[in-house]
Design a protein around this nucleic acid. Structure first.
Length: 434
RNA sequence: CGGGGCGUGGCGCAGCCUGGUAGCGCGCUUGUUUUGGGUACAAGAGGCCCCCGGUUCGAAUCCGGGCGCCCCGACCA
């Protein structure tokens, strides 16, 4: 992509409404525009990030045995009357009336709908277990939207739902999702800690929240340093491995300030105590037969008796993750994207636009990296290009100036560390490709 | 939902108190300049001053109502 032709409206100054770093940077780097309170349009670069995150989430859900489908954003109120949540949910639910005066709503979550779908499509114990999921926009009419996409009203969420025949099966699904989540966050390139949580609106008795560590996080978190060493990508779904992994995630100490247990904390060796701040980016729940029973969803068991499936639900705030990652990874100059989800893996900076040699090198780099690079081909001074590249946070910058270009050298800069290397073009390419 | 604040070119703001030609910086256009950390000079373009109503000879400015947005607190992926 050529910056000169792109729709990436970066800003030199910060819009007044943006108070926190991620919100400021998302606006300044041209990722989003606010369209109404808590409602954002995703511009090309922002959408690339959103899609890359969604793709990793998708791959890990699939790997865990979940199956993707897509449910609508608009739901019928009748469905929610079945579970009793139409009245219980309150003002956060955006209620809509259509031309026939039928009561609809913009879905804040999908337990009812997915239960209705499974109720219609699975009749026998042989049809379970199932873990359907989708990645879809949700709407919660927050009293006070803030922090940009961290607390928007409209947000993109991956929500999965597990249906099992018994508690043991439900617990297994829960464990799979725990692993899928840890693998997902690790692939994205951030540290997430699972913490025991309340079940809130959804109900049930087993739940974990996943917090990513960021100095500006909303809640204080306390955790055992051993979480930092964990490697979920080396763990597969074989029963023994999964069991060990789950055990290691749930026996180590981790809690938000609300649930902090001073006694348990004191038992941890001082050198392993970690205190920080976290942003919640996901939550998983086991809630048993709450919906299957109230919505009368049963399958026929092997003995011919009715059996109400055991359920769980599993959310990841995909759009929230974009903001949360920026909170966790930025500096004075701008965003520091993890490689896996950067809108552009590499920025190409032509320090002397119009120069035949730098132009030629940049053009060939641009062709080679294709959609994965952003070529700053504007008629701007070097300083402006440096500032812009740092702001947008490309993991790599290939800086092509007349000095080095004359001898086939370019400068490669790693955004995260600030390291710079003077290299021949071919070596720079190899390094970026890793 | 309680408390506070703000709506003026794309962005950041001044002007409002004390009514009378709508201004500054950045950005944008053109030219020159500069050429490795947001360069400098010059000339331009760009405005329902959030909306409706009222007061007045005259309203960005005063008064009333509405809408939008932000911040603090209680609540949430």
């Amino acid at each position: 992509m050529r910056l000169s032709q792109s729709l990436i409206p970066t800003l030199k100054e910060t819009p007044a409404e943006a108070q926190i770093a991620s919100h400021r940077l998302m606006l300044r780097a041209g990722l989003v525009r606010q369209m109404a309170s808590g409602i954002y349009a995703w511009l090309p670069a922002g959408l690339k990030v959103l899609n890359k995150i969604a793709q990793i989430v998708r791959e890990e859900q699939d790997a865990a045995g979940a199956q993707e489908l897509l449910m609508p954003t608009i739901q019928s109120a009748d469905l929610w009357r079945e579970s009793g949540r139409y009245d219980a949910y309150g003002k956060e639910m955006l209620r809509i009336t259509d031309r026939h005066e039928r009561a609809l709503l913009y879905g804040p979550t999908n337990e009812e709908m997915i239960t209705a779908i499974l109720r219609d499509t699975t009749k026998s114990y042989r049809d379970l277990p199932q873990i359907p999921y989708h990645i879809q926009w949700k709407f919660r009419d927050e009293v006070r939207p803030r922090f940009g996409v961290l607390r928007g009203r409209e947000f993109l969420m991956k929500d999965a739902y597990s249906f099992d025949l018994d508690y043991a099966g439900a617990l297994l699904s829960y464990k799979k999702m725990m692993l899928a989540y840890m693998r997902t966050f690790q692939r994205i390139g951030i540290t997430a800690i699972p913490m025991r949580a309340d079940t809130g609106q959804i109900g049930g008795d087993l739940s974990h929240e996943f917090h990513i560590l960021a100095p500006t996080g909303e809640s204080g978190v306390f955790y055992d340093a051993e979480f930092e060493a964990g490697d979920a990508l080396g763990v597969g779904y074989e029963p023994a491995l999964l069991e060990d992994f789950y055990e290691s995630m749930t026996t180590k100490y981790a809690a938000t300030d609300e649930k902090h247990d001073l006694g348990a904390w004191a038992a941890i060796p001082d050198e392993r105590k970690r205190e920080g701040r976290g942003i919640e980016v996901g939550q998983i729940f086991y809630f048993g037969k709450k919906y299957s029973e109230t919505m009368n969803y049963s399958v026929i068991g092997p003995d011919g008796a009715k059996l109400f499936p055991e359920m769980g639900s599993y959310g990841i705030g995909v759009s929230r993750l974009v903001g949360a990652i920026i909170e966790a990874r930025h500096d004075e100059a701008g965003i520091i994207w993890p490689d896996a989800i950067a809108p552009f893996r590499v920025g190409i900076l032509n320090l002397r636009q119009g120069d035949a040699v730098t132009g030629e090198i940049c053009e060939s780099l641009h062709t080679m990296f294709g959609a994965d690079c952003l070529y700053d081909d504007r008629e701007e001074r070097a300083g402006a290009k440096f500032a812009e590249a740092d702001l947008m946070g490309h993991p790599w910058q290939i800086i092509v100036g007349p000095r080095g270009a004359a001898n086939g050298q370019v400068e490669l800069k790693r955004r995260a560390t600030g390291e710079r290397f003077e290299l021949p073009v071919a070596e720079a390419i190899a390094k970026v490709r890793g």
